[in-house]
Amino acid sequence: MGSTNMSYLNPKTVTLIGIPGLEHVQFWIGFPFFGVCLVALLGNVFLLIIISTEHSLHKPMYIFLAVLAATDLGLCVAIAPKMLAIFWFDSCSMAFDACLTQLFFIHALQGMESGILLAMAFDHYVAICDPLRHTSILTPFFLFRVVLMVAIHATMLVGILPILLKRLQLFHSVVIVHSYCEHMAVVKLAAEDVRINKSFGPFVAFAILGFDMIFVFISYILIFQTVFRLPQKEAQIKAFSTCTAHIIVFLEFYILTFFSFFSHRFGHVSAYAHILLSTIYLLVPLPLTPLSME
Results as ranks from 00 to 15, higher is better:
residue 216 V to Q: 13
residue 197 N to T: 04
residue 249 V to R: 10
residue 261 F to M: 08
residue 216 V to E: 10
residue 261 F to W: 07
residue 231 P to W: 03
residue 238 K to I: 08
residue 225 Q to C: 02
residue 248 I to T: 08
residue 196 I to R: 00
residue 196 I to W: 13
residue 202 P to Y: 03
residue 242 T to P: 00
residue 225 Q to A: 01
residue 204 V to Q: 09
residue 231 P to I: 03
residue 248 I to P: 00
residue 212 D to V: 07
residue 211 F to S: 14
residue 215 F to D: 02
residue 213 M to A: 14
residue 220 Y to P: 10
residue 259 F to H: 10
residue 216 V to D: 01
residue 211 F to E: 06
residue 230 L to Y: 02
residue 265 R to H: 10
residue 242 T to F: 14
residue 267 G to H: 12
residue 228 F to N: 15
residue 232 Q to Y: 08
residue 251 L to F: 09
residue 231 P to S: 07
residue 242 T to M: 07
residue 221 I to D: 06
residue 239 A to T: 05
residue 267 G to I: 12
residue 252 E to N: 11
residue 227 V to R: 13
residue 196 I to P: 04
residue 239 A to V: 06
residue 260 S to R: 08
residue 274 H to K: 11
residue 220 Y to W: 12
residue 208 I to L: 15
residue 244 T to H: 05
residue 237 I to N: 11
residue 221 I to Q: 04
residue 249 V to Y: 06
residue 217 F to T: 14
residue 206 F to N: 08
residue 264 H to G: 10
residue 244 T to W: 06
residue 198 K to C: 08
residue 244 T to P: 00
residue 252 E to Q: 12
residue 196 I to S: 09
residue 224 F to S: 08
residue 248 I to F: 11
residue 236 Q to R: 14
residue 241 S to L: 04
residue 202 P to C: 03
residue 262 F to W: 11
residue 250 F to G: 05
residue 223 I to M: 09
residue 255 I to N: 02
residue 248 I to H: 09
residue 198 K to E: 14
residue 217 F to I: 15
residue 247 I to G: 01
residue 234 E to W: 00
residue 217 F to S: 11
residue 212 D to Q: 11
residue 270 S to G: 09
residue 223 I to D: 08
residue 261 F to S: 05
residue 204 V to L: 04
residue 241 S to G: 03
residue 268 H to M: 09
residue 218 I to G: 01
residue 227 V to K: 11
residue 208 I to D: 01
residue 271 A to M: 13
residue 270 S to V: 04
residue 264 H to D: 14
residue 221 I to M: 11
residue 245 A to F: 05
residue 241 S to Q: 07
residue 194 V to T: 14
residue 220 Y to D: 08
residue 264 H to T: 06
residue 222 L to N: 13
residue 222 L to C: 13
residue 252 E to F: 15
residue 256 L to M: 15
residue 204 V to S: 05
residue 237 I to F: 03
residue 254 Y to L: 08
residue 232 Q to T: 04
residue 229 R to L: 02
residue 202 P to S: 02
